[in-house]
């Protein structure tokens, strides 16, 4: 096997760090740190996009990197930090499954993700195809984080981390989606966060807390 060029090695480094961040998000219970981890993940995604942009010279990837920087590294984390301060939610409750259990499930998920990515990366012509497995792992780990958390805020952070994974996947498989779509998705994410901001205040006003166990009364049991 030929040695990898330097930028590809960097890119693989970014991918590995992304995965590592996903794992630390899985176990992080302080919500402020969770948001910081998300911002860091966004920054890595931005760096990875830039690396690919330089390598392939595709103009729209630069724009995509700028968008990621503005939205995921600066915009959303700031918004979330403000929400955290205003709503006064700093800690998540004990997760549904304990930390070591979650980690073990996470490990299995990574193995599964690489299995899933195998047939796709075998077909891909991009130089970045080997990172597709990591992208899928990031998506699924974010999903796991979402399932195991109780606070609405941590679920949202996990949701955004899933979005990061999706973008990373798009980049490694096809060097990103067409510009129209990326812009649309970015707009949707932004609006989603604004809607959520409003929504959180409504929840707090009603229940005096952002704990989701208040939101479990609508069930089909009578």
């Amino acid at each position: 096997m030929a040695p990898l060029s330097f930028d590809l090695q960097l890119l693989n480094g970014c991918a590995a760090l992304l995965l590592l961040l996903s794992f630390s998000m899985l176990s992080q219970r302080r919500i402020v740190n969770l948001v910081n981890l998300l911002a860091l993940q966004g920054a890595l995604l931005c760096a990875a996009t830039l690396l690919v942009a330089v390598r392939t010279g595709q103009g729209h990837l630069y724009l995509s990197a700028v968008l990621t920087l503005a939205l995921k590294v600066v915009g959303l984390p700031l918004l979330l930090h403000r929400l955290i301060r205003r709503l006064n939610v700093y800690w998540d409750a004990e997760p549904v499954i304990n930390a070591s259990g979650t980690m073990l499930i996470g490990l299995l998920i990574v193995v599964f993700a690489f299995g899933l990515a195998q047939p796709i990366s075998a077909l891909a012509s991009t130089a970045t195809r080997s990172t597709l497995g990591i992208a899928i792992a990031v998506i699924l780990l974010a999903f796991l984080t979402m399932i195991t958390r109780r606070k609405a805020m941590s679920q949202v952070v996990a949701f955004l981390s899933m979005e990061n994974g999706l973008f990373f996947g798009a980049m490694s498989a096809t060097y990103g989606m067409p510009m129209v779509v990326e812009l649309g998705v970015a707009l949707d994410v932004l609006v989603a966060m604004l809607v959520l901001g409003v929504f959180f205040f409504q929840i707090r006003e009603q229940f005096d807390s952002l704990d989701l166990h208040h939101l479990e009364s609508l069930k089909e049991t009578e």
Partner: peptide, 17 residues
Amino acid sequence: TPASLEAGWKYFILCGV
């Protein structure tokens, strides 16, 4: 209402995911 907030949250998260 509490029920409508719960419904909205479920709608948002489930459809979002």
